[in-house]
Design a binder for these strands. Sequence first.
DNA 1: TTGTAAGCGTTATCAG
DNA 2: CTGATAACGCTTACAA
Lengths: 351, 351
Amino acid sequence: MNESSFERKPITIDDVAREAGVSVSTVSRILNDKPDVSRMTRQRVQAVIDRLGYVPNLQAKGLAAGKSRMISLLFPMEHAQFTQLELDFFVGAAEAAGKRGYFLNLYTEPMDDAGLLNLYRSGQIEGAILMQIRMDDWRPALLRQHRHAFVMIGRCADNQDFRFIDLDFEGGIALAVAHLVEMGRRYIGFVARPPEMRTAKLGPAVRLLDGYLKACEQNGLTPLYREAGMSADAVYTAANSLLDEQPTLNALITVSGAAAVGAIRAVTERGRRVPEDVSIVSLASNRIATLITPSLTAINFPTDKMGYEAARMLINALEHPERKTEQVLLAPKLVIRESSAPLRGQHESAV
Amino acid sequence: MNESSFERKPITIDDVAREAGVSVSTVSRILNDKPDVSRMTRQRVQAVIDRLGYVPNLQAKGLAAGKSRMISLLFPMEHAQFTQLELDFFVGAAEAAGKRGYFLNLYTEPMDDAGLLNLYRSGQIEGAILMQIRMDDWRPALLRQHRHAFVMIGRCADNQDFRFIDLDFEGGIALAVAHLVEMGRRYIGFVARPPEMRTAKLGPAVRLLDGYLKACEQNGLTPLYREAGMSADAVYTAANSLLDEQPTLNALITVSGAAAVGAIRAVTERGRRVPEDVSIVSLASNRIATLITPSLTAINFPTDKMGYEAARMLINALEHPERKTEQVLLAPKLVIRESSAPLRGQHESAV
DNA sequence: TTGTAAGCGTTATCAG
DNA sequence: CTGATAACGCTTACAA
């Protein structure tokens, strides 16, 4: 019990300065890689820093510099739970933030404009990642007006030069429909997101349904869809209703892994097979798609990458305001797995 | 363009004080619910605060008070990826932290003792949630010695009076085995965690295998297990090896949702049915268990609750050091779903 | 009950 | 190239 005494007070920049025989300003310069420091002093001071195990106090640093190095993910939980999707966004963003020395925190309570502005004005955050973007979202314009940094995961109807990263949902659905048509299927049903999401003008809900209708038109198909909750059970019911109305249905498109599970159940319970009788294509991340049986042919949703990129874009905007704003619309990728197959694959009809 | 001018500077406590005609200390007292303030001034100042939309600057507050209100989740990514499990812990903890006005951040790089102590000494964090706890983990003793606050998700072999929350893994496996025995099954295989996790003495890896061996002994069963990676593919291989060695196997226990998927695949590919021929019980959260077909009979792993509780315990320790330390060992719950069934359920043997 | 003033650990400005 | 010194916004004795 000689080396370590209990409860040592944190080592400060003063300690380092005194120990190295220089002023605090010199230490500060070294800490922040400023020029105008002789190599010799730099080395000497650095040695002291290492020996003492000194780490700067972030709060003091932030206070002095007028920066909090805090960004936040704004996910108003209204028409949504915090699912795998949002989780992945969050983790990706947290990783990117960490790498650049920023902290990420999460706000899930819905906020009015005063609340949102306060977040910035109070110095709590330097920037925000906006989620649950509505087609006519009021937040981007407000933040822009007040010159506050933000990036959207998602996008509005009119995006001006707002920073965003989003998936091309229309394109994704088009890809899914094209794939199914190629498989010889022309009776393609769709289980859309719940109606309250569409009336709230949430981007994905609107664009997925639009994309479906458009793709049907372009392929000369008769659209047939239901709007349903996001749970497997809700989609199970919706899929049944679809299969009742149109018994010739030979393909279904769903918008999440859980939804696909519900659809698969509805199909198999009536003695029809996936993918032979009814093929299923869904929006899903690789992780979820491979967990499900049969593994899902899916429009890949690279959620963690999106969260990561969003944070990266935001921090870049913070540190290099002069650079031009990035707008990233990810091209959808179709990953073919077991839940889709050509229509005439009905050989083994005996069992 | 009259109301809102651009780039207003943040409103400070001085602004409030001036506007209300009192001193900053009075405002500070009101902000922190201290006594010794007349009802009248309190009201008057509060009105000003509301009108101005003033929010205290957390950095300044922390600096002055010598507190960072920052806690972190320490998850050294060595023998693990950041999976659904850890994700859930994180989100739960973030939620609890947010509710109490703390920030949670995540460290995934492994740390040596100097690094760990620096986190506290530099004032970066007030407390930590430790994950990936080894049976002989060195971190709790070190932190205790330096009087630093922490709580473990997991536990060591010797936990003294360290704060922790963990699942009773031995009990969970015992429950799984008991359930399968009750279903009339006595050839119960086990796909354990990978050997490197066991040799690293990670709690769950050690306790799950121990629990399995013990449960076999108590039920007079012959243990038969493989250690395998956590991916579906690795478990698929392991399960096949198990089924080759012991064709009479009629039950399998796995340790994650993905593992169960691999096991199910191995069983069904040899023309045997789940649950009739081979029942499967797995460790899994409700969300994952219901995503899989057949839905998993599972030892419920309440991950988000554990993360939440861990953060709550930590913050309590921070704010009420006098209270006695909590040690929470969660009793496992078995949720019976479709992947397990009585052995003699082999009626419809014709197809 | 209220006010004054000295920090908290940095950064940044401005002289040397 | 280096060093004083004044912020940064808040808390907290200590006075009044």
